[in-house]
């Protein structure tokens, strides 16, 4: 804007950008109860190193990146052996630039017995957006998976009734994907067409 090159940031605010959280695995010791969770899972699940792609500890939270083929197995063990009785839903994230792993699904788990939290993350390519459903493990994920399907188009295989939940049944597209414009459909009024808001200006 106004002929500025680069980021156009003349204020020094760019200086606030700190080093991004590492996308690699965290090193042991993880700290807090995270080592114990990882040890318990390794002991209870012999395929640990095969199923868990990465273990990330960031901002006091533990994230296990799970291969989708092993998601249900790992979930079963986390529920029954490690006592993560509750799954607080699933939240999708769309990274269009992350080739081959465009769609992520994040499952925050909660253990009432041990008062602990852990997060599972599964990533799948956009071209093959299938993740096995964990409804048989945590029945309460039913609606959450429907919402993530509705918003991101991730298909949860084995879900008892994967239909849209928030958008109308005949809606085209999945609104929270990054390639879906805000507003989605152009607003037409008396012949003039207003583009979706994110095509009008950008704060970035």
């Amino acid at each position: 804007m106004f002929g500025a090159r680069g980021t156009g940031d003349t204020s020094g605010y760019g200086g606030l950008v700190r080093t991004a959280a590492s996308t690699g695995s965290s090193e042991r010791p993880y700290g807090s109860y995270f080592d114990e969770v990882a040890d318990d899972l390794e002991r209870a699940y012999p395929l640990f190193s095969e199923a868990i792609e990465r273990v990330v500890v960031d901002r006091g939270e533990l994230t296990l990146h799970v291969k989708r083929e092993k998601l249900v197995e790992v979930s079963m063990i986390l529920r029954d052996t490690l006592k993560f009785e509750m799954c607080m839903g699933v939240s999708g994230i769309h990274y269009p630039t992350d080739a081959g792993r465009e769609l992520h699904a994040v499952y925050p788990l909660l253990s009432l017995t041990n008062n602990r939290r852990v997060r599972l993350e599964v990533s799948v390519p956009d071209a093959d957006a299938h993740i096995p459903s964990v409804v048989e493990v945590w029945a309460g994920n039913n609606w959450h998976e429907r919402e993530t399907f509705d918003m991101f188009g991730i298909i949860f295989d084995g879900h008892p009734g994967l239909t849209r939940i928030l958008m109308p049944d005949d809606w085209q597209g999945h609104p929270q994907r990054k390639d879906y414009a805000l507003g989605g459909i152009p607003v037409e009024y008396k012949g003039a067409t207003t583009p979706p808001p994110n095509e009008r200006r950008s704060y970035k």
Binding site: S11, G14, T19, A20, T63, M88, Y203
Partner: peptide, 20 residues
């Protein structure tokens, strides 16, 4: 004035990551 303007219109940046 610049500080006020930038903060209110552009906002502050938040480091990369995810939290719950």
């Amino acid at each position: 004035l610049i500080h006020h303007f930038k903060l209110v219109t552009e906002g502050f940046r938040v480091p990369t990551g995810q939290v719950y």
